[in-house]
Design a protein around this nucleic acid. Structure first.
Lengths: 193, 193
DNA sequence: CTTTCATGCAAGTAATCACTTACATCCTAG
DNA sequence: CTAGGATGTAAGTGATTACTTGCATGAAAG
């Protein structure tokens, strides 16, 4: 069954080209070429260009949730846990980098993407607030606005991701893990009671 | 002299449309329409579509520097200064929001933009490192990797900006100033000696 | 062996793109 | 009042776009 492989290759090519050039500039012709597939095959699979984008969005709505992986491996040591979460968060963003880029490029034109991409920080926020509240009960973090704290850690990771994904090492050549480690060290020290 | 007003209106329209739809999808026709100008006038002013983008980039390369404003009003009280810097940084990003969006959308296709947009964090990083080093001399911050610390604060602000600029209040409806305040409070507490 | 189904290939559609040319109109500075 | 420069209008260019149609090919399944 070559069909599955073909559709997947088209989606991969579209993912790459749309994330690089944007939806309009990534033509069906170039997508088909990159996929090593005839242009008509693209239309036979997805109907039209928008159907291809829809397929991309659907693929990532079923993406393995970061949420669950955060809940596991909790040691209830603030810095250790936050570093683990941050690393996972960063790696997760990197693994779906192309999709994130498309989402930020085309969110105004295709509102369906906005909902999809907003869902990620919302879920992580929920988990983090839950974690902070539990840690507060244990007397391990001081009293702050936990929602704001959660959003800050998310913003921190996302900012690092954007910088690395878009500008590479232009801004700094500190290794990512080192950067996140310092980043989380400061943040968690600001949270401990 | 109506010329200046016309060129400005075209640039404004282009800024809005390109940031919303991307370079390719923002057609010269729609840009001219939004500017309330005939399409040929656009070409008479900027030669071709790329010349229009070039004009946009040039406009922001002469943008008043955030750098200077940071250097002023230093109180050498960590949290107060960092909050001031963060607020200014955020407001600055918001004021050139459309340009930032274009930069992140088209940086792969037009590398000139990448350099322009990377310059901003580089300058702020330099100032922050300088500030942290001085504060360390004064015994007011503990010893950390100051570059990583600077990058973290920048990532923090940029992350908040991206969230608000792109997703609005979907993720959270905490007022921006309140969010930044908590954000900086945690961060600066993690830095003090 | 034959049928079926995914794909390739060739050709063509109408629409839209960036961009040009020629000429009319208007405002303003001299 | 007049000359020049900025703008509008009209019409059109070739290139490219998303998308379609008809037919050939090839491999796999019954």
């Amino acid at each position: 069954m070559t069909m599955k492989g073909t559709a997947e290759r088209i989606i991969e090519a579209a993912l790459q080209l749309i994330s690089e050039k944007g939806y309009t500039a990534a033509t069906t012709k170039t997508i088909a070429e990159l996929a090593g597939v005839n242009e008509v095959t693209l239309f036979r699979h997805f109907g039209n260009k928008r159907g291809l984008l829809k397929a991309i969005i659907e693929q990532f709505s079923y993406y393995p949730l970061l949420q669950q992986e955060i809940n596991q491996n909790m040691t209830w040591e603030l810095e250790k846990d936050l570093l683990n979460i941050s690393l996972k968060h960063f790696q997760f963003l990197m693994s779906i980098k192309d999709f994130v880029m498309i989402a930020f490029k085309e969110s105004i034109q295709f509102p369906e993407i906005s909902e999809e991409i907003a869902n990620m920080p919302l879920l992580i926020k929920k988990e983090l607030i839950h974690y902070f509240e539990e840690m507060y009960q244990q007397g391990k973090v001081r009293e702050v606005d936990f929602e704001a704290a959660a959003l800050s850690l998310i913003a921190l990771n996302f900012g690092h991701f954007m910088s690395r994904a878009r500008l590479g090492t232009i801004v700094s050549d500190i290794p990512t893990e080192e950067l996140l480690q310092t980043s989380v060290a400061i943040f968690s020290r600001g949270l401990v009671s």
